[in-house]
Structure formats: C-alpha cells, structure tokens
Amino acid sequence: MADSGPGAAEAPPLGRETLARIRRSKQLYPWASSAILPSLWAVQEELGYLTPAALLAVAEELGLEPSEVEAVATFYSMYFRHRAGEHLIQVCRNVSCGLRGADELLRHLERALGVEDGGTTEDGAFTLEGTVECLGACGGAPMMQVDRISYENLDAAAADAVLEQVRSGAPRGRRSRARA
C-alpha cells in the first residue's frame, strides 16, 4: 500500500530464501506466533525495513492476523518501518558512555556526516541515531554500533577511521571484545 509503485503490487513481497527462513522458524516453536520476531528479522535483512506487504506475507505464512504482526513489529525498536540509510550508526548516550564523552562523539559524527541526530546523509549511506538503549559496552565507553557491530573506546580519530572503513567497504569482522 504505502510503497507500492506501479507494478510493485504484483511483485512477491518476499524472496524465496526469506520465505524458507520463515517456514523453518515456524517449525522450531510450539506456537507459530513465536516465529514472528525471527520472521521479521528475516524480512528486514532482505528488504532493509518492514513493508506493509511483508507484514501481510508474514501473517499469512504464520497463520496469524496481520494486525497481530504489526502490533509486534512496532513494539520493538530495532525494526524499521521506513527505509533508513545503507549503514546505521547508533551512539549510546546512557550513563557510562555519557560520563566518558558520548555527547562529544555524537556531535563529532554529526559534523563529520553533515546530519543531525536521527538524520540520513544525502547520499543515503548513513543514518545516525543517538537515542538507543544501553548497548552493553559500558566497559568500552564511549561506543557506537555500525550495523549492530560495536566499536568501542572511540575518540574522534577512531570514529573517523571506522567511518572510513565502512565507506570503503573493507571487511569489518574484527570484533571489539568487552574487556574482562
């Protein structure tokens, strides 16, 4: 409905791989409704966000009312209902990060990307989000996640390096481990 341009209505909302994942999840749980969250993850990984047509398709696959699926989809903060930038940057500003310079980090990113908190860069490469839950990296504060991968102990230079790495598409496998 919302995003259906001409011809979009005929295109199946979900790819075969996504449908297969949804059906596998459905088998995993005693109740089909338990497969809503895994199914929505599968959809978001394919489409980048949750379209109304995709919610309908999930409801259909799981034998649920579409309203139930939408009720769930809108409750959780990590599902997107609109297309965001290609990469999502989230800066934790909870207490531990706040004490160690999260506000400065966010301001630096705003300047570096030329967007305000909540905005998406003109080229659509980055969306910057500064209102997130504590991301469980208080020991490496300040931190940010890019596409749900954590980067910790960041100063301006380190943040720039991460942005550069993301822009260049270099592999970003090296995880930053919480210090034990």
Binding site: V95, S96, L99, G139, A141, A178, R179, A180
Partner: peptide
C-alpha cells in the same frame, strides 16, 4: 565497573 575509572571492565 564503568564510568570514571582507569580500566573499566568486568
């Protein structure tokens, strides 16, 4: 332990 300590961690 986090915040204003030298070496935050568990």
């Amino acid at each position: 332990v986090s915040g204003h300590v030298q070496s935050p961690g568990t």
